[in-house]
Nucleic acid binder design. Structure first.
Lengths: 99, 99
DNA sequence: TAAAAGTACTTTGTAATTCAAAGTTAATAT
DNA sequence: ATATTAACTTTGAATTACAAAGTACTTTTA
């Protein structure tokens, strides 16, 4: 491998997006409010990170009503799971310097 | 743990600094040229990331001459090794969601 | 001895990123 | 009618990252 860091995915450099993806790797779907609460960031910031991940097709969005309240939930796409998993592999290789 | 991402160290969010620290965790000392070559970035960029890590006292710098050529080498400090190791632990916990 | 090259920067300027705060939309509840 | 809630979008400021160019000092080469 020529370069140690080139396989790290830019999309997952941010603490927030790292957090979002970690949560979505373990939980099938998670709604906006829960994510916001877990990560403790403002809703605007939350929305913009989610939007960045959606643009990359790393997450999928489902809008519905639960009772009378709107509820938006997020799930990692197959592509997103792959990308995240690849990123973790790259991190691991980087740290262990096995390449 | 209240928040999943708060234990991640901001200093290691950058791919480049992650790379520098990984290399310095495994190699006692590494010189400027080698780091630059491994990470494939410009020397100005390299210097500024090294300077950021030095300001945090995460790395120590030794300047010497090897033969007739100036040589600057870098080593992770005890503080830096601790900080990086804590960061990796936080990453692992985040990913495994064991907290 | 003058010019070129090497090492390790520093400076400069631009572009990208991050974030909070405020504004928006559409619905429900009072 | 007004307020509240959910989930945004927009705005603007601050920070960060980066390449490119410039610098200082030395050595090598012509």
């Amino acid at each position: 491998m020529r370069n140690f860091i080139e396989n790290l995915n830019k999309a997952f450099e941010s603490r927030v997006r790292l957090g979002i993806m970690s949560i979505l790797m373990v939980n099938e779907t998670v709604d906006f409010g829960t994510l916001k609460e877990q990560l403790q960031i403002t809703d605007g910031n939350m929305a913009s990170h989610l939007s960045a991940l959606e643009k990359l097709k790393y997450i999928e969005i489902t809008k519905q009503f639960i009772g009378k309240k709107p509820n938006t939930s997020y799930a990692a796409s197959a592509l997103g799971k792959k990308a995240f998993s690849d990123h973790l592999d790259a991190l691991e290789r980087l740290i262990n310097k096995t390449n």
